[in-house]
Nucleic acid binder design. Structure first.
Length: 881
RNA sequence: GGGCGCUUAGCUCAGCGGUAGAGCACUACCUUCACACGGUAGGGGUCACAGGUUCGAAUCCUGUAGCGCCCACCA
């Protein structure tokens, strides 16, 4: 016998390994139609967090359903080498001993990194298994597998040949701690409280303008003065005609630089003139590009890779750290009397996403992807409908970003990753998948941005560039379902790479979900201490509870997550478990052979017909919502059906049905119980795979190696939806509710049986007679009959759907309370009636509303008129004061 | 500065043109033979505000206010 609680622990671990051993997760290549989704490969830097749980539960729901629908379902697993993230992790470990990667050297570092990868990838994949993610583990990939690395080289070489990858000397966002370039996307701008220092630059050669011997220039980074190359003034500035071409002296280092006319200077801001430091500011570098041919503008790099001042700085500054240099510079300017003022100033400063350090614009040679032509293809794919966005907003963001895209810096001065397949000898550059022939070639020291390789994930995991059956079958993928935060990083990069290298959009449907916050909408972070651990939640509430919660909250907006929500899902699992216990106690099973012997079309009893109809509606609705990636609504449908319809009503109704004297009714009810429960388990399975598998095996007395997860997804199209049965059960529900309410209001224990009389001539009409037997267990009704004499003193009257029902409760109820109850009921119904009266009194409505709506309102109006008239009469008659 | 979104019951959120919904929390009653991780009943909302379109608007349009996210080089 099943326990009253679902003990998930043993079941989960047993099923996880059984499923995998039995090959249930394998993508079957036998000519079936494919359905493929790529797992966003988790970084090999950590452990499962709630984001992963969401990220993997949602596609797994789709994959499990697709598999049950008989498709070749592939959820492609794997891990990402996560270059900079691994560097950060390792260096953080070594920081305790005061070491960094340069103390180890490249070779030793890579050894350590591989050790770390082996350790970390194992953790995360074990945790994903625990989540019940049904991916094809036999084809797990890592972005630095030899075959994958070959694909990365192939991609690089191909794009280079097409002129879409080039090498250039430019300013990049430089991380002085990791000592590497990062891409624009990895820059996070943060507001920082700084200063705006106003500095006096004197004219050269004793020149004076309107009596002044110099000009005022404002800067937030005074140390960069040492690399100043020009002063810009807006050509529209009145002073421009007198000042352009004049020279000023850079303070402290005493070089002479020209004043040049350029739009970049905003006449309204500060003094209207701005210093130009082309090697340390993006704007200024652009200025340099515009004017380098017409004027002598030096490109002075002031910094070492770790942001100390280099030999281009004056003697006293060489070797100083950048902020120390800033301090010294301010002090010296003040000493020289050239610091006019320093005012507090809040400005946006670029920080590195990974290690949060302030980035420096830095002049280096890097490899770039020319994104313009690729972006164009991405936009065209959206125009053509080759891809489809579930959220319109994503498409807007996608387009906007692509329309304003910059070239992508793909080289990193790091060690863990794909080494750039370029070799140098003197001024020669060779790009190829293998080292060039001949002596003296030296390979580029740099590696590729991690997202360059992740961008190949949909096809490089399937055998590209060689090809083969998997690539043929699963590429392009069906959908991609990542977090909104990696739309640019990953989704668009896959689009670019896929379109350019394979000629096809890598997936058809793009669904992105929001990010998980804590219950107050705060981002979860270790420093805030509000991080919830999915492993702990699975330990406490079970994997199914966590998964169901993920489905329930899934949204394209950011989500608020709380333990309470998981608890609610756990309660659902317990409820389901107990529903199964009830069936087992009634000795209801559903053996495989029963399916063939049973035909839903032949079900006769209204209660059973009603249940099948409701089940059909639910199943149809779940499909509709899952097709639209509305996980939350699909989960809600099946949740409410199972709890509200199945448990609260149907199971209660089967109690009298199973005691029916007609053996055929009992047999039919057992069949419907067995059949329908088995279908509910199937529909619930993608959401809560473990409990449904366990219950299914018991319910169907499944043979070894037969699994729910391999059964067919229910198709409800031919299940009968009986409207008459629906009306019957609605009638039963309404009267049951009214009787229960009367019991509560008059404080009548459920143990006291109540007789009930419908007011009317003759015998109880058939439609009420029909439900008579079920009122007793549901509402505690004894005799249910008809009578024509009005309520006597001490009797209560219920008005349900326009009919009066008298409860002879003499001595049990208080007249005043009954009057109050009726009055309240009257008020409610009158309020509703007056709304409908207004609606139907509106000529426009009657003329233009659709007939169905009109009819519905007229019917409702009739019922309400009947009811209100009867209640009014009761209040004036039998219940009058 | 540009773009995008959100504002519905105390809380978290569905609903997105045809009588305001769920879960949690709250109140009362109930350990009735599937389930107290439960059952039954109940209280609670002029769907941010102002206009407009419509026979009809929480739902579509415009504007206002508050909140949030993304992008962006203002010295």
């Amino acid at each position: 016998m099943l326990d009253t609680r679902y003990d998930f622990k043993a079941i989960e671990s047993r099923l996880t390994s059984e499923w995998e051993k039995a090959g249930c997760f394998d993508a079957v290549l036998d000519g079936r139609k494919p359905f493929a989704i790529m797992m966003p490969p988790p970084n090999v830097t950590g452990t499962l967090h709630l984001g992963h749980a969401l990220d993997n539960t949602l596609p797994d729901i789709l994959i499990r359903r697709a598999r049950m629908q008989g498709l070749a379902a592939l959820y492609q697993p794997g891990t990402d080498h996560a270059s900079i993230a691994v560097h950060v992790v390792l260096e953080r470990q070594w920081a305790k001993e005061g070491k960094n990667r340069f103390d180890y050297g490249r070779e030793k570092f890579l050894e350590k990194a591989w050790e770390w990868k082996d350790y970390s990838a194992g953790i995360i994949t074990t945790q994903l298994r625990r989540l019940g993610i049904s991916c094809d583990w036999k084809h797990e990939r890592f972005t630095m597998d030899p075959a994958y690395a070959a694909a990365v080289n192939e991609a690089f070489v191909t794009l280079h040949q097409k002129g879409l990858i080039y090498r250039g000397q430019r300013l990049v966002n430089w991380d002085p701690k990791m000592q590497t370039a990062v891409s624009d996307l990895e820059v996070k701008h943060k507001e920082v409280n700084g200063h705006l220092w106003h500095v006096r630059y004197k004219f050269a050669d004793g020149f004076k303008y309107k009596g002044e011997d110099g000009i005022e220039i404002a800067t937030t980074r005074p140390e960069t003065i040492l690399a100043d190359a020009a002063i810009a003034i807006n050509p529209k500035d009145k002073r421009a005609k007198d000042l352009v071409g004049k020279m000023v002296v850079v303070p402290v280092c005493n070089r002479q630089i020209p004043i040049i006319a350029d739009e970049m200077a905003d006449p309204e801001f500060g003094s209207g003139m701005v210093k130009v430091t082309p090697a340390h500011d993006f704007n200024d570098f652009a200025f340099y590009q515009r004017h380098k041919d017409e004027a002598d503008i030096p490109l002075i790099n002031l910094l070492t890779p770790d942001a100390h001042l280099n030999e281009n700085a004056p003697a006293g500054y060489v070797g100083l750290e950048r902020f120390a240099a800033r301090k010294k510079m301010v002090a010296e300017l003040e000493e020289l009397g050239q610091l006019i003022k320093a005012e507090p100033h809040v400005h946006n400063v670029g920080h590195a996403e990974r290690d949060d350090i302030i980035l420096e614009p830095y002049l280096t040679w890097q490899w770039y992807v020319k994104t313009g032509p690729l972006a164009e293809k991405c936009l065209k794919a959206a125009d053509n409908g080759d891809i489809e966005f579930i959220n319109d907003r994503d498409e807007k963001i996608y387009r906007h970003w692509l329309e304003n895209i910059q070239d992508w810096c793909i080289s990193r001065q790091l060690w863990w990753g794909h080494r750039i397949p370029a070799w140098y000898r003197g001024n020669e550059v060779y790009v190829g998948t293998a080292a060039p022939q001949g002596e003296g070639w030296k390979q580029d020291e740099d590696i590729l941005d991690t997202w360059f390789s992740s961008g190949l994930w949909p096809f490089a995991t399937q055998g590209w560039p060689q090809g083969g059956e998997r690539l043929q079958t699963f590429y392009p993928n069906s959908a991609i379902t990542p977090g909104r935060d990696i739309l640019f990083f990953w989704v668009i990069r896959m689009m670019m790479m896929g379109l350019e290298l394979t000629g096809k959009a890598p997936f058809k449907t793009i669904y992105t979900h929001g990010l998980i916050n804590d219950e107050h909408g705060q981002k979860m972070s270790k420093s805030k201490g509000n991080v919830l651990d999915p492993i702990g939640l699975m330990d406490e509430f079970g994997t199914d509870a966590l998964r169901l919660t993920m489905a329930t909250i899934a949204s394209s907006e950011d989500m608020r997550f709380s333990t309470g929500k998981v608890e609610q899902s756990r309660n659902f699992c317990t409820k389901l478990w107990n529903a199964a216990r009830y069936l087992a106690l009634q000795d209801v099973r559903w053996l495989p052979e029963d399916e063939a012997k049973f035909d839903v079309q032949t079900i006769k009893h209204p209660i059973n017909r009603w249940l099948v109809g409701r089940l059909a509606e639910m199943a149809t609705s779940v499909d509709k919502h899952l097709d639209a990636y509305a996980f939350n609504q699909a989960a809600q449908e099946v949740y409410h059906f199972t709890w509200g319809t199945w448990c609260d009503w149907y199971l209660e109704l089967t109690k009298p049905l199973l005691r029916d004297t007609d053996a055929a009714v009992v047999a039919e009810t057992k069949n419907v119980l067995g059949w329908a429960f088995e279908k509910i388990l199937r529909i619930l399975h993608p959401f809560t795979p473990f409990i449904t598998e366990e219950l299914w095996q018991g319910h169907t007395v499944a043979e070894k190696n037969n699994y729910l997860m391999l059964q067919r997804w229910p198709v409800a199209a031919n299940w009968p939806v009986d409207k008459a049965a629906r009306v019957t059960i609605d009638r039963l529900v309404a009267l049951t509710g009214a009787v229960r309410q009367a019991r509560m209001m008059h404080k009548l224990s459920f143990k006291i049986p109540l007789n009930i009389f419908r007011k009317g001539e003759g015998a109880l009409p058939a439609e009420w007679q029909e439900i008579s037997a079920y009122l007793k267990p549901l509402a505690g009704v004894g005799e249910f009959a008809q009578r024509n004499n009005p309520p006597a003193a001490g009797e209560a009257t219920l008005v349900v759907e326009g009919d009066e029902f008298i409860l002879p409760l003499t001595g049990l109820i208080d007249l005043a309370a009954e009057r109050e109850r009726l009055q309240k009921e009257l008020n409610n119904q009158q309020a509703e009636l007056s709304k409908i009266d207004n609606l139907l009194g509106n000529a426009g409505f009657v003329a233009k509303a659709p007939p169905a709506v009109l009819e519905q309102n007229r019917d409702r109006q009739n019922v309400l008129r009947d009811s209100t008239n009867k209640i009014e009469a009761l209040l004036k008659g039998p219940y009058a004061v």
